[in-house]
Simulated assay, not measured.
Amino acid sequence: MGFLSALRFAWYGLRDTFKTERNFRIQSAFAILALIMGLLLKIDLNEWLWIGVSIFLVLAAELFNTALEALTNLVSPTWHPLAKKAKDAAASAVLLLAVFSIICGIIIFLPKLVQVIKHFNSVT
């Protein structure tokens, strides 16, 4: 398989996951919100790196979770405790990274938002 074919398949995976997975769309919306806030609050390069890592880790984890769920459903169409364990563990990985991202967002954005609010209150 050539490089362009691999890119095309990767694009199909992103597109299909965005179309079919509500959580991926929600996480993408939060990623866009974080990017907009970063631009508005003029975060520095180090802060951009943390926000970027957070966004990509959560979205990649959700893609892995989606892949694992699809594969689990294929090989175990009926309920099985090991299938449940696999799905729950993958969902937990996404949750842990989402919490990490929220913590990063709070550390980066909260002090800047407090400064904006203080400045706005002092002007009015």
Score class of each variant (00 low, 15 high):
Gly13Met: 13
Lys85Leu: 13
Arg25Ser: 10
Leu113Ala: 11
Ala98Pro: 01
Gly2Leu: 12
His119Val: 06
Glu62Gln: 04
Leu39Glu: 03
Leu97Met: 03
Phe120Cys: 02
Arg8Lys: 13
Phe3Met: 02
Leu96Ala: 06
Leu40Ser: 08
Ala60Gly: 11
His80Gly: 10
Phe120Asn: 00
Asn46Asp: 07
Leu49Lys: 01
Leu71Tyr: 04
Leu41Phe: 12
Leu110Glu: 06
Glu47Pro: 11
Trp48Met: 05
Lys19His: 06
Ile107Met: 13
Ala70Ser: 08
Leu49Thr: 08
Phe109Ser: 07
Phe30Lys: 10
Ala31Asn: 09
Phe100Glu: 00
Leu57Asp: 00
Glu47Thr: 14
Asn46Thr: 12
His80Arg: 07
Asn23Arg: 06
His80Ala: 07
Val53Asp: 11
Phe100Leu: 05
Gly52Gln: 12
Leu63His: 13
Ala86Gly: 04
Ile43Arg: 01
Leu33Ala: 06
Glu47Gln: 09
Leu63Val: 12
Pro111Ile: 14
Ala91Lys: 08
Leu113Glu: 04
Val123Arg: 02
Gly105Arg: 07
Ala31Ile: 07
Ser28Asp: 08
Ile108Pro: 00
Lys87Asp: 15
Phe3His: 11
Ala83Phe: 05
Gly13Ser: 14
Ala98Cys: 00
Ala34Thr: 05
Ala31Lys: 07
Asn121Met: 05
Ile55Val: 14
Lys87Gly: 05
Ile106Ala: 13
Leu41Cys: 13
Phe9His: 10
Asn46His: 07
Phe24Asn: 02
Ser92Gln: 11
Leu40Thr: 01
Gly52Ile: 13
Ala29Ile: 06
